[in-house]
Amino acid sequence: MSISSPYPYPITNPELIKAHSLIKHFEGGFFAQTVGLDSALPPSPSPAIVNVPKSAALEGREQTASGPGAELLTPATNADIAGTAKRSDATQIYYLLTPDSYRGRMHMNLHSLFVPGGWWKASEIPDEDLLLLDAPDAKEAKLDERIGCLISEVVVPGWNPDQHQFIDEDKLKTMWGGKEGWEQYVKYIKAPDGLEYPDK
């Protein structure tokens, strides 16, 4: 196997980690929250903003965006929202897997967007991509910096670590009702050899 230059992953993992201020995540990989969208019932009605229509779904709540991606939203004040009954309406993150942390731990959230709440899920770099690291010129091409998977995810309502859980072997076996087939998913429970997941 040989690598044709340049490998089609133009930005290195260290550059992505630095550019987006990514930190290690307890599922594995690296992440940063780019936008948080919160709402609350205001103490008094605020004046209408002409170019931003009021949503009936908000039921009178005022929304405020925060995070480095908030400038894409209007209005984005990056300030704490005033009012009562605060809630997190949505969060958006970047999540990066690298050869040093190439598989996320299987987990479930109560809420999500394209993956409904209550479903187990995990992310990983495809095996065929990791096999490129064994190519004769992989070190010279610094492929360990150019192989990865950058995911952007939106969670609705906003992500809350208290609504997040990991699967264990007992739960996995129970899902299969005593039948075979669960064994292939054990790799998503424990960290890959030589790696460890940070504490939650």
Rank of each mutant, 00 (worst) to 15 (best):
M1C: 12
S2C: 05
S5D: 01
Y7W: 13
Y7P: 03
Y9N: 11
P10H: 11
K18C: 05
S21H: 12
L22M: 10
F30C: 04
F30I: 10
F31V: 11
Q33V: 13
L37M: 08
L37Y: 10
S39C: 09
L41S: 08
P42Y: 01
P45V: 08
P47E: 05
I49Y: 02
V52K: 03
K54S: 07
S55F: 02
R61P: 07
P68M: 02
L72T: 14
L73T: 14
L73Q: 10
T77V: 06
N78T: 03
A79N: 13
K86D: 01
D89T: 03
A90E: 00
Q92H: 00
T98V: 06
T98N: 00
Y102E: 12
R103E: 04
R103Y: 02
G104F: 03
R105G: 11
R105E: 08
R105T: 09
H107Q: 04
H107D: 01
N109L: 15
N109D: 10
L110C: 00
L110D: 00
L113D: 09
L113A: 14
V115I: 15
G118C: 13
W120K: 04
S123T: 09
E124P: 01
E128K: 15
L132A: 10
A138E: 04
K139T: 14
K142G: 14
D144I: 15
G148M: 09
E153H: 04
V154G: 06
V154W: 05
V155S: 03
P157D: 01
N160Q: 04
H164G: 08
F166C: 03
I167N: 01
D170E: 14
K171S: 10
G178Y: 11
G178H: 08
Y185V: 10
V186Q: 12
I189W: 00
K190E: 11
A191P: 03
D193F: 07
L195Y: 08
Y197W: 12
P198G: 04
